[in-house]
Structure formats: structure tokens, C-alpha cells
């Protein structure tokens, strides 16, 4: 699941649908964003990843979390709330992936501390654009101090 690369940026994608995960990977590839993409299936796994529990003992701390809102076990909202309550994790920017521009979801995400949101692709061009902007913003403009 890891695209090894010289670029040190790590992105954690929390997404249960492989087809959508694949779309994100394709968009990242197309937009020439150089990063390591880590994929987990749901919120519970994502927390294990972040806290380096179980199989994720050697997991890096991601620079960005891309979060799907609708997942089994722990859904996106619960995960987001949990991350923002944890002082060790709350500094990691979380960008929400939504299926629609349902205002309710967007407002809720921002309330819970999401750094931004991307509407899931209906049009690949748009999605690649969005990912590229993400790249510009989070990896260049709002570059965070790197923790080791």
C-alpha cells in the first residue's frame, strides 16, 4: 500500500471502498504529487495507525489525513472527533472526502476540526485539480513542522 518515494510526505487515506481509494491514488499520480500513500479501511484501523498499535508499529506519522465520512465500524465523524480530542494527533490536518456537497456534512466536518473538504470525483479532471490544489496548499503553502 505504500508508494515508496524520495518525497518524505506521508498521506493517510481512510477509505473503505477500494475503488475510491484507487481513484485517489490515480489522482495523486496524475497530479504528480510525490508522497507515500497509506491506506486503512476504517476509523478504528486509522487510530491504530496513528497510535502505532498492532500491525502499525512502524507506521510514520502522516502529514495529512484524507478521510471518507461513511465507513463501517468507526465512521468519519467519530474518527475526526477522536483525533481532534487527542493532543498528540490534533495537529495533523484532516481533509474530508464527501460524496456530495451536502452542506450538513461539510458544516459538521468543519465544526469537528476538518481542515478542508474535497467532493469525491464525478469528474476526474476536477478531482485531479482538487488534489493538485491540496498538494499546493498543504505541502507547500501550509507546510507543517516535521515531527520525527
Amino acid at each position: 500500500m505504500t508508494t515508496a518515494n524520495a518525497n518524505p510526505f506521508d498521506i493517510l487515506l481512510v477509505e473503505d471502498e477500494p475503488a475510491d481509494a484507487n481513484l485517489v491514488r490515480s489522482a495523486l499520480k496524475e497530479s504528480k504529487v510525490l508522497c507515500n500513500l497509506h491506506l486503512v479501511q476504517d476509523g478504528v484501523d486509522a487510530l491504530s495507525f496513528l497510535r502505532r498499535l498492532g500491525q502499525y508499529l512502524d507506521a510514520p506519522q502522516p502529514d495529512l489525513i484524507l478521510l471518507d465520512l461513511n465507513m463501517p465500524r468507526m465512521n468519519g465523524r467519530e474518527f475526526l472527533a477522536e483525533v481532534k480530542q487527542d493532543p498528540l494527533l490534533s495537529g495533523i490536518p484532516v481533509v474530508v472526502l464527501t460524496t456530495s456537497d451536502v452542506e450538513r456534512d461539510v458544516v459538521m466536518s468543519y465544526k469537528l476540526g476538518a481542515a478542508g473538504y474535497i467532493t469525491k470525483p464525478v469528474d476526474m479532471e476536477q478531482f485531479i485539480d482538487a488534489i493538485r490544489q491540496l498538494d499546493n496548499y498543504w505541502f507547500v503553502v501550509a507546510r507543517l513542522p516535521r515531527k520525527n
Binding site: A19, D20, L23, S26, S100, K120, V122, D123, M124, F127
Partner: peptide, 13 residues
Amino acid sequence: MEPTRRLSSYTQL
């Protein structure tokens, strides 16, 4: 909407 969206995306892909 979910499969519809993917159908569209993957056709483009």
C-alpha cells in the same frame, strides 16, 4: 449515487 459516480470516474480513467 455511489456506483454511478464511480462508473463515471472509471470511464474517464
